[in-house]
Structures are given as C-alpha cells and as structure tokens.
Nucleic acid binder design. Sequence first.
DNA 1: TGTACATCAGTGAACGCGCGTTCACTGATGTAC
DNA 2: TGTACATCAGTGAACGCGCGTTCACTGATGTAC
Lengths: 182, 182
Amino acid sequence: VPAASSGRPETREKILQAAGRLFRAHGVDATGVDAIMREAGLTHGGFYGYFPTKEALVSEVSRSMLETSARKWQEISDCGDLDRALFQIVDTYLDLDRVLSGPNCLLPTLSTDVARRPAAREAVKAPLLSMLQSLEKCLGGDPQLSLRLLAQMVGAVVLARIADDRELASAILCAARRTVDG
Amino acid sequence: VPAASSGRPETREKILQAAGRLFRAHGVDATGVDAIMREAGLTHGGFYGYFPTKEALVSEVSRSMLETSARKWQEISDCGDLDRALFQIVDTYLDLDRVLSGPNCLLPTLSTDVARRPAAREAVKAPLLSMLQSLEKCLGGDPQLSLRLLAQMVGAVVLARIADDRELASAILCAARRTVDG
DNA sequence: TGTACATCAGTGAACGCGCGTTCACTGATGTAC
DNA sequence: TGTACATCAGTGAACGCGCGTTCACTGATGTAC
C-alpha cells in the first residue's frame, strides 16, 4: 500500500535500485537521501515526490530486495530436479566473490538495519516465509531442516564478511556448503 | 595498543560498557557520543580524554565485547564434560529472551557495523578465532563442523531478530538448537 | 497549423537540527615546604 | 599543622558540517481551440 507517490514508475524503480546498492554497501544510516538521488542520476529535491520519508524508502527497499530473492528461489525450486535446485541455491548464495563484493541477499548485509525497524521487519516478513517454503520444498518438506539451513547460510555470509581474511572467509563459506545432512 | 588515553581505568570501562549497550540496541551510527557519555553518567566533553575518535571507540568496544564472549566459551569448554559444555554454549546463545532483548553476542547484533569497518574487523579477529577453537574442542576437533555450527548459531539469532513474530523467532532458535549431527 | 494554457517531473536554495570534535575552564586531590 | 601550588578528571559552551525535509521554481510535454 504505497502512501503518496507521484512521478514515473521507472524513476521510482531507479531510486529503489540506487538505494539498495548504497544501503548494502554503507548501511542505511551512513547513506544520505542526497547520495541516493545522485546515484539514481537525479537531484535530492525530487525524492519526496516518490517517498514520504527516508524511513518509508527503507521499508520499500527491504521488501523489494527480499522479494527479488524470494522470486529467484521460487523459480529455481519450481522447475524440475530438487537436488539440483538446492545445490544451485546454496552454491550461489555462498559464492565467495559475490559475498565479499557482489550483489548480496539483504538478510546478511542489512540484518541489523532491518531488525531495528519494525516497519522494515513487517515489509520483509512475506518474502522471508516464501524463501523458507522454497527451501523446504527442496529438502523434502522438513520445516526444521529448512530453518536450520537458512540460518547456516545467513550466518556463514555474516561471518565471512566479518572475517578480516580472505582465507578464513573462504573456509567459512566452504564449510557451510556442506548441507546439514550431506 | 591503545593510542592516547588518560583518565581513570574504571571510567574508561564504564564508557566501554555504556557504548556496548547503546550500540547493540540502536546501532553504531544511530548512537551519538553525547548519548554514550550520558549513559555512562558523564558529560560529552570528557570523551576525548579516553578515546581519540568515535571510530576508535567502536573498535575497542568490538574487541572488548567479543573478548568477553570468547573468555566465557573458553572457561565453559575448559572444565570437564565436553558434551555438557557444547550444550551449555549453544543453549545460552539461542535463548529466546536473551536474543530478543537481553545482552547479546556482538556477532549477530553488530555484524554489519563491524563488517564495514576494517579496524573493527581486525580488532575482532583474535577473539573470533578463540571462539571457534572452543567450539572445535567441544566437537572433537573437527574445524569444518565448528565453522558450520557457529554459522548456524549466528544466522539463527540474526533471523530471529528479523522475524517480526515471536512464534517464528522461537521456531528458528529451536531448530538451530539441534546440532548439525544430532 | 499556430497560439495559449495546464500539467507535472525534476531542480536547487534554504531551513532547523544534531552530530563529532575542540578547548578554555573548574574544582577536587595530592604533594612541597 | 597550615599554606601554596601542581595535577588532572571531568565540564559545558562553541565550532563547522552534513543530514532530512520543504518549497517556490523551471521547463518540457500534451491538450484546447
């Protein structure tokens, strides 16, 4: 339910993408509205034609980013071989280069920013459940196992980004590649 | 190697504790030097007698907090029964009330703040390795397994704090209580 | 086809505010004689 | 024991700056006649 938004939808999408990139790179509080609009190729004044506040943007970006992840996982888990689907999801998620510098999942890179914002937590709830369902499907319907696997994947990325050392980061991601039961 | 620090050591410790509490609750960027000193029962001007910059404080707090966790795990894993030690570490870490409101481990609550600060990453490296060693000891010397278990624990706490729902948070923490191989 | 006007996406100067940091100071404590 | 002085932990006013937000505006586009 977007509150007050004028302007062209493509511009809105450009702002969401730009904000997503900068939020993941520097965190929400370290990213100004001014920088976001510049990244989107616009000037800061126009921002409030698209979002009522910066906080509203944070929620929208969170929803949008996790919905994208959820859609991808659903597509992967929908077509055919479940074992291959699981492998593809896990392997992509834990790719070293993607983890250290590429376009990441929101869960490990903006976890604290989302966790501290009730509105963002709510916005993220539905796609999070969808991701768990995709995992559960690949794992033969065990909900506990899918929770455990997602936790392991998210935690591995979090730790790899904290580890001040490419070796250790790589070891963490490799260890987490092994699924809970093989 | 603390750079320039005058003043009483007890006061320094009070500032570290106060900063730790506020950083975990609101994040680094949303916590001002002013608020930290007020929480410590002082006025903001005195801060720079103890730390050269706010960034230096962030590194010191990160090191200090994770060293405390590392020390606890070492004590637990040092005395006697390894199975009981493992259970105690995991069970304490994943306690629902502690996760949602209590004094948490730094890794899930300040992960993004630390990951984006090279100085803080370095400060945190040694205690992180120490924690992994304690886990490894409890797990019979398997380094891969200890990496996987820490990832699962950290990820579970991250997800539980994002989940906008006490039920789901509880389910995540319970699922993660089951160790990788029973 | 040409002129007048309405629409509206995007501009950029300006605002009040809170931040990190500095610095001249206060006042309690300890030492010298 | 009493006076003079040095030390130094902590104070609080002040600074420059960048933030989120507002608003009067510009200028391109489309419609009316």
